[in-house]
Amino acid sequence: MATAIAKLPDHQAAALSRAYASSVAAKRMKTLAVLVVLAVLIFISGQMADIRPWKLITNIGNFGSFIGRTLPTLTFGNFFADMKAWYWNFGDWFQLLVETILIAYLGTFIGGILAFCLCFFASANLVRNKTTRFVARRFLEFCRTVPDIVFALIFVIAFGLGPMAGVLALTIHTVGALGKLFAEVVENIDMKPVEGLQATGASWLQTVRFGVLPQVSSGFASYALLRFEINVRGAGVMGFVGAGGIGQEFLIAIRNFYYTDVSAILLMIITTVILIDLGTEQVRHRLIGMERMR
């Protein structure tokens, strides 16, 4: 079926199209302004960060040959012996990898418990006292703004070299990061159960236990698992400053140009991280599912 489209008279159409053109032009000007600001910022930071694109282009071959040299020679006929030569130190590396995961676990575990204790003091709906809240929040902010590896640097001197310094550094960072997220979860709860408990004369502790905890536990667990994932990555580089884990071995390999060791260790780290990612993702989906069912 043919439909006639009504056509506006020319003088009306011209006015409308002018309005359209001017609104489009205004939008384009805004985009252009943003681009100009970005370009200026890029130029300034390029100067400050000493960016030399030519050097990158001329040396990009180095990256290729670096990657190429790290690749082991694996032949089909002699596969197992080649694998064995590539992973000549597998026993030690595996042990260090387990150590790395344990550092991450302990850091998350202790940090999670401390964050759990602190988060209730940082949530506006449970603590009316402004000073308490302010102190708790600033403390958490300090813990998460100073990078974990800086804490590790200081702790290595105070507690001695070794994984303990790494665990403590991760713990402090975890307290800061999880404390904030936990407090946000607590602030988003339904306050009716809390009010009900308060009306029956429950103490603050009882209110938290029976009014708040059942609502937040799955959210807390989900965030803690996410943090564990991040901490595994963090624990992998703790060894760079001597705070335990596989990082030390990696640093030695890359600084001394033990090329195939670099790829062997890197592959182990990547596999571990991806496996842990997938595992925690499964558990977190289940937790969220449980939340929905309730």
Partner: peptide, 25 residues
């Protein structure tokens, strides 16, 4: 993306130092 993500920034830095030398780049 997963592979890029699972390598820590510090490890990337060590590798790029081999290519463009020490420094902010």
């Amino acid at each position: 993306f997963d592979v890029f993500r699972s390598v820590d920034t510090l490890i990337w830095a060590l590798m790029w130092i081999n290519v463009v030398g020490l420094g902010p780049f």
